[in-house]
Design a protein around this nucleic acid. Structure first.
Lengths: 110, 110
DNA sequence: CGTGTAAGGAATTCTGACACG
DNA sequence: CGTGTAAGGAATTCTGACACG
């Protein structure tokens, strides 16, 4: 969740390729960045770099746009989903912590 | 083995990024292609596109070059390894075929 | 053999703006 | 709001060649 240089999340694809992969115009892709729906990295020279995860994200955005959903709403949904993931993460951490405690001090029934 | 548009094998990375990822110069990367050690695709405009698998391949090549192995030898090793994979594949297919036959006509012991 | 480099040109990408709506 | 486009410039990539070794 912090150090993940995997194939899916490494930002290595230039905008032209992303355009081909998604069917979106470069204009659209840049605009969705402006609306904070996507967050490419940059090369030294300033060119955008995307990951496969970004490509998938863009395809989802394209689908929602086709349904007439506005970028602002899409952003709200994304933020909501992010909160949800955080909540899930918190629960898992608690579970694990509980597990650690039980392992050390024995299992208290009830 | 034929239709695999996965993150690992999709050719989507330009040579500049590959250079950063591998630590090799663009000159070296192009030369290894000339020596048939790597096979990028091309954009419409003629620019090279590599996959993550290519990047890994290049790193292996770089390691072997550091050991002083010549590109010709590296190519020979690659071809040998490829033959080996084909052989393995052939065996697996035979196993599966045998399985099919047994499933239909019963298992002949000995 | 393997790699660096300068050369000239072409493909790619960038930003800010105008347009339409 | 979301997208197209022309504009000018900068970053990226391409090929073929010369150099060294």
């Amino acid at each position: 969740m912090a150090i993940d240089p995997s194939y899916k999340t490494r930002k290595v694809i230039t905008i032209g390729i992303v355009s081909e992969l998604t069917g979106l115009s470069e204009r659209q892709i840049r605009y969705y960045e402006e609306r904070k729906l996507i967050f490419p990295e940059r090369t030294e020279g300033g060119n955008r770099k995307y990951s496969f995860a970004d490509v998938e994200q863009l395809i989802e955005i394209a689908n929602k746009r086709e349904e007439g959903i506005q970028t602002y709403e899409i952003r709200q949904e994304m933020l909501k989903a992010k909160e949800k993931r955080k909540e899930e993460d918190r629960k898992v951490r608690n579970q694990m912590l509980r597990g650690q405690i039980n392992a050390r001090f024995g299992i208290q029934k009830e």
